[in-house]
Design a protein around this nucleic acid. Structure first.
Lengths: 369, 369
DNA sequence: TTGAAAGCGATACCAG
DNA sequence: CTGGTATCGCTTTCAA
């Protein structure tokens, strides 16, 4: 039935036409008489001919593939990223190559190599050196996701600083919290750098002293658990002390402005993303702490879980799928028109999502989970 | 420096040799005199020549790429899967194409198309129809991961039934639990089918009546939260009380039997994987339930988080990375030797991991052959 | 409209 | 050892 060994020449011979005609028919290009077309189509159908991708790619000098490079995929963020990227590449009949450089030392070389097998590469910010990015860019279209490229390498990213500042201000002003800690490693990725900056900005603009340093852990849920361990270990920094807290005889969620009566002010843990926030939440709940009464926790991303946990996680919504889709679009466009000017940088907007983990009464928000 | 437009012919001309010699030098095949080699190497270096992948692939009739197909990547399972697959493909200089068929209707066609662009395809069990698998298999090497292929399509999977039966028996016998529920959809994937079977087997071999039906949710953490909502809704099956949590006067985590003298036997929630177990755990803790005192929860996979949460999650360890690596190995071997007999099915062993969430005192572990 | 032929970039066989 | 050349499978001028 569908033997993959059939070539244009075979079909041409069987249909009694030239390979050029077969090509024209199978691609729908050029003019072909109805009679010829019928004969060719028949032969194609009968032998299950499908043009070979390599031959076609070689002739067209186009791979029909896009590359996606990231540090070490983990969690819903990369899930969304990949799916968004793929959903945009697929309609253009481009396949998706992936490369996780995680912990590998020769990743620059790997990426360069990938650049020779695809029509464009999207690199997640902070994954490879700027030098490698530059060299990659002069060999194939490149776009940086969630970061900034050197020179005129285009990038697509979501707003970070201002929204993290807004979130932090919300805790500082609306909930009158102090002694906030930041969980995340600013040196780990451009996104976290900006979020840390926003966190600091909020403090400074209010004349408050931010913590001297963040709790520098990774972006995975496990890292959040790790951070919780560090934070809640008896006798450690954050004013949360033991989880015992005051009796809090009151009923459920409602408590709006309870700040007044409570003697021991709960601390707040501002996490670099939802994953770590969830990890911290699990760590806190597992130790008998109550959120938000004993401890406030916030995230960033608005991952699927954020709206589902109890209490709902206050966070910043970021359009990750869109980010990746835009990146794919940039590459596709650049590949289609090699001479075009570099795409402009894209900055997608984010949105504050207030749920219960920050102490807000209910799911209000600019949002619907 | 590194212009990608240089071809063998260019180098040959510049070095004053034939293309054959350039090819020999750049591939290290055949014998070349030191003098020629030097000249060629120099030209290659000077112009930054790197052989084009398409030309090479066309000549070799080999793509230098492997495909990986899965339903909708999510969670640590797929993270491990992809990384294991890639770590095996990379040393063979094969790139990795991915395809998530999630929710798409034309996925069979997509997979067939992918089959024409790679040297072999690994398909996660339950992702595409057996028909499509069959057709794919007669066009390129195929291996099924975590499932079984039709006909002589090879597969690699981990043991499920016996280990889930062992885990269930542990709850039933060692902890004297009754009224276990199973969270997961047996119709969703071959793995879950087998785990459900093991769950049932354990009951029957002890002369106990298993629940009539599972709680049929997906495999993501959010699904676990959903299941928890369903299970712990007041008035529902599992004999657990309200989640409102009494005043928690005691110290931190350790708190023993505080739920009053309530002798109500805690139920047990056996989850199809760690992700959902974690979701259920979060849902339970968020409602003030104590694990394992009020409720026992178990998972499957031994994901990174399993050992980190409080309480540690009792589960079954599955070598996911190895699974994927083996799959890649099978494909690579098949691609290297087209005439070879189909690879035998591989069954990797799993291991029971007893932590605290089942009621066991401390971390201990046993293995099941 | 159709076909012959020239690539696309690299490999490998076969003489010399 | 080295070089000419056929080949891989398809697309695309260029004539007819």
């Amino acid at each position: 039935m569908s033997n993959s060994r059939v070539t244009v020449r075979e079909i041409a011979r069987l249909a009694g036409v030239s390979v050029a005609t077969v090509s024209r028919v199978s691609n729908g290009t050029g003019q072909v008489s109805p009679e010829m077309r019928r004969r060719v189509l028949e032969a194609i159908e009968k032998h299950g001919y499908r043009p070979d991708h390599l031959g076609r790619a070689l002739a067209a000098r186009r791979h029909g593939a896009l590359g996606l490079v990231f540090p070490g995929l983990s969690g819903p963020y990369f899930t969304e990223l990949i799916q968004g990227f793929e959903s945009e590449a697929m309609p253009s009949r481009s396949s998706v190559h992936i490369l996780c450089t995680h912990l590998r030392e020769d990743s620059d070389a790997q990426v360069l190599e990938m650049g020779r097998r695809v029509d464009g590469v999207a690199v997640v910010g902070g994954t490879i050196s700027d030098g490698a990015l530059g060299r990659l860019a002069q060999q194939t279209p490149v776009v940086v996701i969630a970061g900034e490229g050197p020179g005129d390498v285009p990038s697509v990213r979501a707003e970070n600083t201002a929204s993290m500042a807004a979130l932090t201000r919300h805790l500082l002003v609306d909930h009158q919290l102090r002694d906030l800690v930041f969980v995340g490693n600013p040196a780990g990725s451009p996104d976290v750098t900006r979020r840390w900056t926003g966190f600091l900005d909020a403090h400074r603009s209010l004349g408050l002293a931010p913590p001297a340093a963040p709790v520098p852990v990774g972006l995975q849920q496990a890292d959040g658990v790790l951070a919780a361990e560090r934070l809640f270990r008896p006798g450690t920094g954050t004013g949360t002390g033991t989880g015992s807290g005051s009796g809090a005889g009151a009923g459920a969620a409602g408590g709006a402005a309870e700040s007044g009566a409570a003697p021991a002010r709960p601390g707040g843990v501002v996490c670099a993303n939802d994953e770590t926030a969830l990890g911290v939440l699990v760590g806190a709940l597992g130790r008998g702490l109550r959120v938000p009464q004993d401890l406030v926790i916030t995230g960033f991303d608005d991952a699927p879980m954020a709206g589902l946990v109890t209490p709902g996680l206050t966070t910043v919504r970021q359009p990750v799928r869109e980010l990746a889709a835009e990146a794919a679009r940039v590459l596709l466009a650049a590949a289609a028109e090699p001479g075009a000017p570099p795409a402009p940088d894209l900055l997608l907007t984010t949105e504050l999502v207030l749920r219960h983990s920050c102490g807000c009464p209910a799911d209000q928000a600019t949002s619907t989970p």
